[in-house]
């Protein structure tokens, strides 16, 4: 059995730990914010990440969205951004928000992808207003079985 993989320096490892901690801090910060932003006219949808043996499946619930407008982009190696236009007028009052006024035009959320994925091979579909993105996982190294 032979194992080959890229050697990582101690600085790579420290960098990864810092990235990890930053994402935890970001998650903590985000969780204290409302799921809507009147300044950017956006609503943060519910989303979910499932990591399986060979792919990462990201889903997002996008009611009232226009399926043609859905955009999925990898911002950096660990963050996926989902955006979609809302096809009907939704104002604060529609969501039971009385103390502020404004309208929402877009769904927007950022999802952390904790393992390397191949964006070129991503597959997307929208069904029942739910976006599903399938991202094949990149293989880091191979273990040969003799």
């Amino acid at each position: 059995m032979s194992v080959s993989r890229r050697r990582r320096s101690v600085f790579d490892l420290i960098g990864e730990y810092i990235d990890e901690m930053e994402s935890w801090v970001e998650e903590l910060m985000v969780s204290k914010q409302p799921s809507w932003n009147i300044n950017t006219n956006t609503i943060e949808p519910l989303c979910n990440v499932d990591i399986t043996h060979d792919e990462v499946v990201v889903t997002a619930d996008l009611p009232f969205s226009d399926p043609e407008s859905v955009k999925v982009e990898l911002l950096d190696k660990g963050t996926l951004e989902i955006k979609a236009k809302i096809k009907r007028r939704i104002c604060c009052n529609d969501l039971g928000i009385i103390h502020q006024s404004g309208e929402f035009y877009t769904f927007s959320c950022k999802v952390r992808i904790p393992v390397p994925v191949d964006m070129d091979k991503k597959k997307e579909k929208v069904k029942k207003g739910i976006l599903e993105v399938r991202l094949p996982r990149k293989k880091g190294y191979e273990i040969k079985v003799e």
């Binding site: 799921s35 609503i43 519910l46 009611p63 009232f64």
Partner: peptide, 14 residues
């Protein structure tokens, strides 16, 4: 009202 319900219920769901 399925879509409206989904939108309004999302924070309780979370």
């Amino acid at each position: 009202k399925g879509e409206e319900i989904r939108l309004r219920a999302k924070d309780v769901m979370k």
